[in-house]
Simulated scan of single mutants.
Amino acid sequence: MKLKTDPFVLYIIAVILFAYFFPQWGSDKSVVPLDTIGSVGISLIFFFYGLKLSPEKLIAGLKNWKLHVLIQLSTFLLFPLVVLLFYPLAKSMQQETLWLAMLFLASLPSTVSSSVVMVSIARGNIPAAIFNASISGIIGIIITPLWMGLFLNTAAADFHLAVIYKKLLLEILLPVIAGIVLQRFFGKYAVRYNKQLTIFDKSVILLIIYKSFAESFEEKIFSSIQWFDLLLLSAVVTGLFFLLYFLTGTIAKRLRFTIEDRITAQFCGTKKSLVHGTVFSKILFGNTAAIGIILLPLMLFHAFQIFFISFVATKLAKR
């Protein structure tokens, strides 16, 4: 079976390499206002996200509530609880930073585009996938900062939930609401130019990734991470994915879901959004030098989830 490599994963690797060799453009002293460009780009991403949300479809999707509850509990409760079990093992400052990065990954919402695409390929419950992936991003605006606030309050003196929620409200929630309000007027254009909007979204994400890693490289944050640590982190991220994939599948079977609903539960309940992750990291962690490390588990998870789910979806499509 031939699997296609997601080009976006290759672009991420290229951007990280570019940040390694040319970190100066992403520093605070750079003449290029990447922070401002990134903030405006973020607001536009979520405005277009709101334009694509159909209130009628979201309301219609409420019927299959058991499936929705399982997916959201997996996304925002099971994932973080599993990571919390390993908190006592974080002894040193570096280990605590990596653990916070894992908690950040675990507390993120699901991703919209790839979840729906993979469920569609696997012939799962597409309307439920659209509903859950869409609503997950909105729930994440509230839940993700709460999870991180439990530990960042003690790790960072400048972390204040009120300030964080203000930024999330202005940069994310208000643009989403504006998009939903204007959806009936401009929603058709968002659908028509979805390909171009996707390119725009990914460009903004790559810009944020560049700045995040450029700052980390300039401060030599990665100098303490050895290849063995990176391989161990990759194994932990992979193990976390498989554990949640198994748990959601087992629970779905116990609840006697149809095969279509089980596919949707496992695909949507184990996805983590790279878009929300990069955006939230910028707001939650500001311009801290360690932000590259914070994003590292998410990058590894993103690459692996796409590879594995693509394989499974292609296999299920032949049933």
Rank of each mutant, 00 (worst) to 15 (best):
Pro7Val: 11
Phe8Val: 09
Tyr11Ala: 08
Ala14Gln: 05
Ile16Thr: 07
Ala19Val: 13
Ala19Gly: 12
Lys29Cys: 05
Leu34Arg: 07
Gly41Asp: 05
Ile42Arg: 03
Phe46Pro: 02
Phe47Met: 00
Gly50Lys: 06
Pro55Glu: 11
Glu56Ile: 15
Ile71Val: 14
Phe79Ala: 03
Leu84Arg: 00
Leu89Asp: 01
Leu89Trp: 08
Ala90Cys: 05
Ala101Glu: 08
Leu105Met: 12
Leu105Trp: 14
Leu108Thr: 12
Pro109Trp: 09
Ser110Phe: 12
Ser115Gly: 07
Met118Ala: 03
Ala128Val: 11
Phe131Ile: 09
Ser134Asn: 09
Pro145Val: 14
Leu150Gln: 05
Ala156Val: 08
Asp158Val: 06
Asp158Gly: 02
Gly179Ala: 08
Lys195Cys: 04
Leu197Val: 14
Tyr210Met: 08
Phe217Arg: 01
Ser223Phe: 14
Ser224Val: 13
Gln226Trp: 06
Leu230Arg: 05
Phe241Val: 01
Phe242Thr: 03
Leu244Met: 13
Tyr245Ala: 14
Tyr245Phe: 14
Tyr245Lys: 07
Phe246Glu: 03
Leu247Ala: 12
Ile251Trp: 10
Thr264Gln: 05
Gln266Ser: 04
Gly269Asn: 11
Lys272Asp: 04
Gly286Asn: 04
Met299Ile: 12
Phe307Met: 08
Ala317Met: 08
